[in-house]
Amino acid sequence: TETRTFTDEREARRFEQEARDNGKDVQVRESNGKFEVRVK
């Protein structure tokens, strides 16, 4: 599991989409204006 934290939602979404395109299981959590993207 890899976790990346972004402050920019667009960057978080781009990373999320890229991971999904690669067939990964992705979860995005938002807290305090930060976006935590977990990739399995």
Rank of each mutant, 00 (worst) to 15 (best):
Gly33Ile: 00
Lys40Gly: 13
Asp25Cys: 14
Thr7Leu: 12
Glu30Phe: 11
Glu16Met: 10
Glu30Ile: 14
Val39Pro: 02
Val28Gln: 02
Arg14Tyr: 08
Arg14Trp: 08
Lys34His: 12
Gly33His: 03
Gln17Ser: 07
Gly33Tyr: 00
Phe35Ala: 01
Lys24Ser: 10
Thr7Tyr: 13
Lys40Gln: 12
Glu2Asp: 08
Asp25Pro: 05
Arg4Ser: 07
Arg14Asp: 09
Gly23Pro: 01
Phe35Asn: 02
Val37Glu: 02
Asp8Gln: 00
Glu9Phe: 05
Phe15Val: 05
Thr7Ile: 11
Thr3His: 06
Phe35Gly: 02
Val37Ala: 02
Lys40Met: 13
Arg14Pro: 02
Glu16Tyr: 06
Asn32Gly: 10
Thr3Ser: 08
Ser31Asn: 13
Ser31His: 14
Asp25Lys: 08
Val39Lys: 00
Val28Arg: 04
Phe15Pro: 02
Lys24His: 14
Ala19Phe: 04
Lys24Pro: 01
Phe35Ser: 02
Lys34Gly: 09
Thr3Gly: 05
Gln17Phe: 03
Glu16Val: 09
Val26Leu: 02
Phe35His: 03
Val37Gln: 01
Asp21Glu: 12
Asn32Ser: 05
Phe15Met: 06
Arg14Met: 11
Gln27Lys: 07
Phe15Ile: 04
Lys34Ile: 15
Asp8Tyr: 00
Phe6Thr: 06
Val28Trp: 12
Gly23Met: 05
Phe6Gln: 05
Phe15Asn: 03
Thr7His: 11
Val28His: 03
Ser31Ala: 12
Gln17Met: 07
Lys24Ile: 08
Glu30Ser: 10
Asp21Thr: 10
Glu9Asp: 03
Asp8Cys: 09
Arg13Met: 08
Thr5Tyr: 15
Val37Tyr: 00
Arg4Lys: 11
Thr7Ser: 11
Arg38Lys: 12
Thr3Arg: 05
Asp8Thr: 04
Thr3Pro: 04
Glu11Trp: 00
Gln27Arg: 08
Arg14Leu: 12
Arg14Thr: 07
Asp8Leu: 00
Glu18Pro: 00
Thr7Gln: 11
Gly33Val: 00
Ala19Gly: 03
Lys40Asn: 13
Lys34Arg: 12
Asn22Met: 14
Asn32Ile: 00
Thr5Leu: 13
Gln27Trp: 12
Phe15Asp: 03
Arg20Trp: 05
Asp21Tyr: 07
Lys34Tyr: 14
Arg29Lys: 12
Gln27Asp: 11
Arg14Ile: 14
Glu9Tyr: 07
Lys24Arg: 11
Val37Cys: 03
Val37His: 00
Val26Ser: 03
Thr3Trp: 09
Ala19Thr: 04
Gln27Met: 12
Asn22Arg: 13
Thr5Gln: 11
Arg38Tyr: 11
Gln27Ile: 13
Arg20Glu: 03
Arg13Asn: 06
Thr3Glu: 09
